[in-house]
Design a protein around this nucleic acid. Sequence first.
DNA 1: CTCGCACGCGCG
DNA 2: AAAGCGCGCGTGCGAG
Length: 582
Amino acid sequence: MRASSEISQPGATDPAHWIALGRLGDRIVAVALDAKADETTRVDLAPPEVAAWVRRRESPSLRWVWSDTPTWYADLLAEGVRVARCHDLRLCHAILRTPGGDGAPGDPSMSRAWDAAAVEVPATAPALFEIEAAATRPSLPEDIEDVLTEFRRQRAAVEAAENPGAIRLLVAAESAGALVAAELRAAGLPWDEAAHDEILTDVLGERDADGVPAKLEDAARRVRIALSDPSASLDSPPKLLRALHRVGVMVDSTSKWELSEHRHPVIEPLLEYKKLSRLQSANGWAWLDEWVHDGRFRPVYMPGGVVTGRWASSGGGALQLPRQLRGAVRADPGWLLVTADVAQLEPRVLAAMSADTALAAAARGRDLYAGIVETGAVPSRADAKIAMLGAMYGATTGDSGRLVPRLRRTFPRAMGLVDAAAATGEGGGVVSTWLGRRSPPPPPEWQAVQARASEPDAAAADETRARRWARDRGRFTRNFIVQGTAAEWALAWMADLRGRLAALPEVGAADAASRSGPVFATRPHLAFFLHDEVIVHVPAAHAERAADAVRDAAATAGRLLFGDFPIDFPLDLRVSRIADKG
DNA sequence: CTCGCACGCGCG
DNA sequence: AAAGCGCGCGTGCGAG
């Protein structure tokens, strides 16, 4: 190993606000920047020295600037190094770039190289800090000068924004989310393989020599009897549809909701077959074998993977785990799980965004839908729920569509906000979340179709098509502002929670070390996230303090986004060893 | 053979 | 009762 040649040694009083990491040939360069992003010192390091150097320079008041969090942080975590804050250039670029921007200095739309998609970091990839890996790095810029240039552009874009305070909060929250995602993968979700196997065997039955579970086989047999077709294909929708038609079940599709409207001996076993076969193919033994190792499920989370700002996931279906399998999520011995989800996050966010004090009052301290019933707007909780969902999704027909006007009378401000977002979208405009994430503009074809429909000689079909597409986009922008702001609240919640958990005491490795890797084996950590829900894995002795941290972080997130506006975010919170039991 | 798409269903 | 938003993934199947 070469000794590091430090171009200038930062002293103990060096007031670095940021340290940017980037490459220079086969070296790693760290550039310390002051509050104005002016360079103060520069250090060049051999890749194997990076983790130890970062550990030494880490401080809660410092923000690490790097191209892409999984690329840089996964290796740090593997080496036992946790950082408090970062600025993820790829994610923040996506927030700050202006489609069709003028390309002026400071406008990040000019830095196209940063539009790269998320970088996949396979579990088996060579470590970043190994020199050989450099050749296989992705297309995202990593050279230190590119990193510094983009960082300065982004800083300028933030300051030039309409509401710099909100955008500053958004890029900080987005970057914190990137740290959380990397840590969630590093720590993993504690998963009891034996419990999972027990659930599968219980639901699907014992597997025969060919690996076919008995109850699945039995359901298939009963379906074929009811169809009077011993060789009927049950997994091909077109073939199954024809077989159903032959026995007089005249459905238009093979979806379960349509099937359940019919009465015929084939319906019950077919619905059973579909349910079992889904569990088998999506989260059966093959999934367990592929995705769970050493007692951990390690999904790949993709922060910012959805246009609204929600996370997506890639591999393992992390965001679609059936509730049926929650019983396999079990804390390590001596540890507990704190499971918390926010009740009715989206309507609460809507109440705050629109400053609708009537809706906020209906929500306060209780079930929001019960509060809506108390206003007299609708007769039952079920009505309140489908009316509210209909308002946020843009329902126009059915029970939901009929109930929305009642909400419009009772909560005119909240409904006015989503209606306005829909109108903007229908007109081809761009809407923004509370903190300023912009919806994508309509594609050029959309514009062309609208233009054609408004020409004097437009055909009726052109007008119909244009109108339908405009309405589709209206429903998208209507939902965008609410879903996106809810995602921002969740990021703020996790970012604050992450800091509170890091401040809790560690346990001694001899007492109750878990299998959560070098950073998290002895301290409470986030283990799962699902839009409005978190699971924290915590040494049993600190479970109550972790639960308080989860609640306090929710309150803090509400104040961070909405200040003094009187909206609360009550949690359903449980402390348990198994994620599905109290 | 691989690839892209539609379907259906899991999650919020 | 099952439409109104956002996703990922396994499966079958036709196109190349």
